[in-house]
């Protein structure tokens, strides 16, 4: 049976892992390569690196991080943040990433999804969506860009369907309302999108406890759950999460995890 994935997210700024709350006030929390290695050995199923580097001249640092990560971990990982062209996608994929994640750039230029899917295959193209609850939108959710700072006219459901039609092979759905709150994922929007598209949906934003993850798998129909702060600060380990899910009857990869 296909297992539910635990995806550990590392925000990287100028080559350092960082974590902010609602995209404000970031603090450095470690070396991304070292953290990737630790999570790989701890049983993470997949990693995501978001490059939130402020300046263009520091972008090359990210490629170096990706190359070093690729030499040490042998699970899939994706890279997102600021990727706006086929050349940028190619450099990230050739550095060893499995997938690229497109977010604001795809909203501004949807054709980049088609181009990326044609050049590298749908399985390489992840659509990252930041969403905000908004009762004026048909689905009840609005797509926002630039880390949640800029609202768009796009409805979340319509955009998810369009992106998949264009060739996106996976969607990472991040609730700006829930992000950083540790109060649980938004299961309503997650289920809405997961049931509307044929590709896997990764729930993001709001994870605080293993129970939250179980809930988004059951009630949100998520295929994978993204975690960040709940594992970065040692509150829970990947093994804690997996033991909880395994005990609750959710299929997860237990290789390397002590059943306890």
């Amino acid at each position: 049976m296909l297992e539910k994935r635990i995806v550990v997210c590392l925000d990287v700024r100028d080559g350092k892992t960082t974590k902010g709350i609602k995209f404000q006030g970031n603090v450095d929390i470690g070396d991304p390569v070292e953290m990737a290695r630790t999570y790989y050995h701890a049983g993470a199923d997949e990693l995501v690196f978001y490059d939130i580097t402020a300046s263009a001249e520091h972008r090359g640092i990210m490629i170096d991080v990706v190359e070093r990560v690729a030499r040490e971990i042998f699970i899939p990982f994706s890279v997102g943040g600021g990727i706006a062209s086929l050349d940028q996608m190619r450099s990230v994929l050739l550095a060893g990433a499995e997938k690229v994640s497109l977010n604001s750039q795809a909203v501004n230029n949807p054709g980049i999804i088609d181009e990326g899917a044609r050049a590298f295959g749908n399985q390489c193209i992840v659509l990252g969506m930041d969403v905000l609850a908004d009762t004026t939108m048909p689905s009840g959710y609005r797509v926002v860009i630039q880390g949640g700072r800029t609202p768009t006219e796009r409805d979340v459901l319509a955009w998810a369907r369009e992106a998949v039609d264009r060739g996106a092979g996976e969607i990472v759905l991040n609730s700006i309302d829930a992000d950083g709150t540790k109060a649980g994922y938004d299961c309503i929007v997650t289920r809405l999108i997961s049931e509307a598209v044929s590709v896997p949906v990764v729930a993001s934003g709001g994870a605080g406890t293993p129970q939250h993850i179980e809930t988004v798998f059951r009630d949100g129909a998520a295929d994978a759950a993204l975690v960040a702060s709940m594992v970065h600060y040692g509150e829970y380990s990947v093994a804690d999460i997996k033991r909880h899910l395994h005990g609750a009857g959710v299929p997860v990869r237990m290789d390397g995890v002590d059943v306890g």
């Binding site: 297992e3 539910k4 994935r5 399985q123 044929s198 295929d223 994978a224």
Partner: peptide, 11 residues
């Protein structure tokens, strides 16, 4: 009634 592609970890 399953998602295609089959993507992720399986036994």
């Amino acid at each position: 009634g399953l998602k295609v592609p089959h993507m992720g970890w399986n036994q």
